[in-house]
């Protein structure tokens, strides 16, 4: 704990923004926030205050979303009630990509600014993203069986999402692969940044290749081609998934910080005993 705090202090002292007073106020405020969160104890206090709110938001949006998705939205004229798988599948796919972007962003922040919390956030985000990717693959498979007549096809969209899943597994494994925690964080961060190449491939795979998976129908230049009644539950569920992501993220960050603190305390006790 003391080690981490010292680390945070050192970073706040050496951070360039503290040297120049001519900075714009907004920028210094941003940097203050940046450094404010560098202290794990402060972050834990903040996150324990935020957690119930984020949890409530998740529950509200999920209940509304499910009500719209399962009861209040129409069945598709071709697909019937199977279309309701979309309300889980599509948000999961968005979350899978969002979580990887999030993971890579915090890896970049961790590598460049050496923010003490950034790698912890990245480490916490990786398994959540992996779960969303797996859910996306499973729900897609369940949807594919009645609609395409097959659980799985090797088209570009499915393959690139499967690769995303393996990239997540690689990042998670690297986080535990070395005895030196700094080494773990940096290696995982480099893989996360390298893996960013896959995200545009996933997004545009349906345009570049002739895939069985349908092309984009919500996020595209000409506006969504889905009716409003189906778009509402889709977005409600998506927002609830985002809230859920942050809820689990906060829990995981707290637990990682706690385990780090425990480790430091153990080490201190050991040193005192000698």
């Amino acid at each position: 704990m003391r080690g981490l705090q010292n680390n945070a202090l050192k970073i706040s002292l050496t951070h360039p923004s503290f040297g120049s007073k001519s900075d714009k106020i907004s920028r210094t405020q941003n940097n203050d926030m940046f450094n404010f969160l560098a202290n794990p104890a402060r972050f834990s206090r903040l996150s324990s205050k935020m957690k119930p709110w984020v949890g409530c938001l998740t529950l509200c949006f999920l209940l509304f979303g499910l009500w719209f998705a399962l009861l209040s939205s129409p069945a598709d004229y071709q697909q019937g009630d199977t279309v309701r798988i979309m309300y889980v599948h599509v948000p999961c796919a968005w979350m899978a990509m969002f979580a990887f972007l999030f993971l890579s962003t915090f890896s970049i922040i961790g590598l460049i600014w050496r923010h003490p919390l950034a790698h912890v956030i990245a480490q916490s985000a990786a398994p959540i993203g992996a779960c969303f990717t797996l859910l996306c693959l499973i729900t897609g498979s369940l949807w594919g069986k009645p609609m395409w007549g097959t659980w799985w096809v090797w088209d570009a969209r499915l393959t690139s999402v499967l690769i995303l899943f393996f990239l997540y597994l690689g990042v998670i494994t690297l986080h535990k692969a070395f005895d030196d925690p700094v080494r773990c964080e940096k290696s995982a961060a480099i893989l996360a940044i390298f893996g960013l190449i896959n995200l545009p491939v996933i997004k545009f795979s349906v345009d570049w290749w002739n895939t069985l998976h349908q092309p984009a129908s919500v996020i595209k230049m000409s506006g969504p081609s889905i009716h409003f009644s189906m778009l509402t539950p889709l977005f409600l569920v998506a927002v609830s998934f985002i809230c859920f992501f942050f809820y689990v993220l906060l829990i995981r960050i707290e637990s990682i910080l706690a385990s780090k603190r425990l480790e430091t305390l153990h080490r201190q006790c050991g040193r005192r005993a000698q």
Binding site: L174, A177, F178, R183, S187, L191
Partner: peptide, 11 residues
């Protein structure tokens, strides 16, 4: 990336 890792062979 996997230089000197535990279980480097599988990683």
């Amino acid at each position: 990336l996997s230089l000197g890792a535990r279980r480097g062979g599988v990683l």
